[in-house]
């Protein structure tokens, strides 16, 4: 009996010590509080809508996580979403097969990642500057191409990637799950993943260990652009149009989700699960504030407070 109890306790303590547990607990408490004050939070329809929104942010956040794990940052993911969306929508409207058009959008988005990765890894320009610049380049390109007008008349055949569901769960949530599982596998089971954490922990030592640090960092920006492009295209299907300003501010939501989920901006620490929980907190909080009829001015400030609070808590948890 005593032994069993001890083992049970050690399992509990192992879970508690997990980086994500504290933040998961915070999520549960938050859900409980909001549910008491605004009982339609957990209504079927609301859960359906909120989960779809969260899934999209989480996908972008997971891509951003890869970059942040090495101590980098990608500010261009929001604009990459927009550009990938506009590129695929433009191709669709021009009569290209919708699936080929999606592929085209992905390629265009990934090109931004290649641009970022090349400048950061091989030309050694700080990622903050590179991605700030490429964000503007991508945003500018969208405006040049669309002249600020939305692209409409999106083929009905692809709308299900945003609006459809499978087993009563929105398709974007399924896509998020697939992305999350693959990302989790890559980060924890592969050499590539191990090396990403190593670079974040000590880049010099990793390099001298015989790791091609440049190549790995290059691919991280490509990954971030890839996941952003996926979401950019899903947004096209969701609004049945490509908006010139689509994805604006999403880089901040993605970074915030990662940080709330325990990712260290210095690199070396963070997880896929944390990102997803972080995205849940951001999404449910925003939704909850609306349901509780909090003024939208206050919503922005409250979300800001939560981000800072998460960083402070994480700092003390480490001690």
């Amino acid at each position: 009996m005593g032994k069993k109890q001890a083992r049970g306790w050690s399992v509990v303590s192992a879970i508690v010590k997990q980086r994500e547990s504290a933040i998961f607990l915070a999520l549960l408490i938050m859900i409980a509080v909001i549910q008491i004050m605004a009982p339609n939070l957990l209504s079927g329809n609301n859960v359906y809508l909120v989960s779809r929104q969260i899934a999209l942010v989480a996908i972008v956040a997971i891509g951003e996580l890869f970059v942040i794990l090495t101590g980098g940052i990608d500010l261009s993911v929001g604009a990459t979403m927009g550009l990938a969306g506009v590129a695929s929508a433009g191709a669709m409207v021009a009569g290209v097969n919708p699936w080929l058009a999606i592929l085209f959008g992905m390629v265009v988005g990934v090109l931004i990642g290649i641009f970022n990765g090349w400048l950061v890894s091989y030309v050694l320009i700080p990622p903050f500057i590179v991605t700030l610049g490429s964000q503007e380049i991508a945003r500018g390109t969208i405006l040049i191409v669309t002249k600020g007008w939305p692209i409409t008349n999106i083929p009905k055949s692809i709308l299900f990637i945003a609006q459809g569901d499978f087993l009563h769960i929105p398709v974007p949530v399924w896509i998020m799950l697939v992305v999350a599982v693959i990302a989790q596998m890559v980060l924890t089971k592969t050499s590539f993943g191990r090396r990403i954490y190593a670079i974040g922990g000590n880049e010099t030592a990793t390099f001298l260990s015989g790791v091609n640090v440049k190549k790995i960092k290059f691919f991280l920006y490509v990954i971030a652009a890839f996941t952003a492009s996926i979401v950019g295209i899903i947004l096209v299907a969701r609004f049945e149009s490509a908006q010139a300003d689509a994805g604006t501010g999403w880089e901040m939501q993605a970074i915030a989700s990662a940080v709330i989920g325990g990712t260290s901006l210095a690199g070396g620490a963070g997880s896929v699960l944390g990102c997803v929980i972080g995205a849940c907190i951001m999404g449910i909080l925003a939704n909850g504030l609306v349901l509780m009829r909090v003024s939208s001015y206050w919503q922005t400030a409250i979300i800001g407070v939560v981000i800072v609070l998460a960083a402070v808590l994480d700092h003390f948890r480490k001690k």
Partner: peptide
């Protein structure tokens, strides 16, 4: 500390870093 170890990783992670 600066050139060899990844201080926040485990002994195993560090020991096998060059034989992936």
């Amino acid at each position: 500390k600066v050139q060899s170890l990844i201080l926040n990783m485990t002994v195993r992670d560090n020991l096998t870093m060059s034989i992936h």
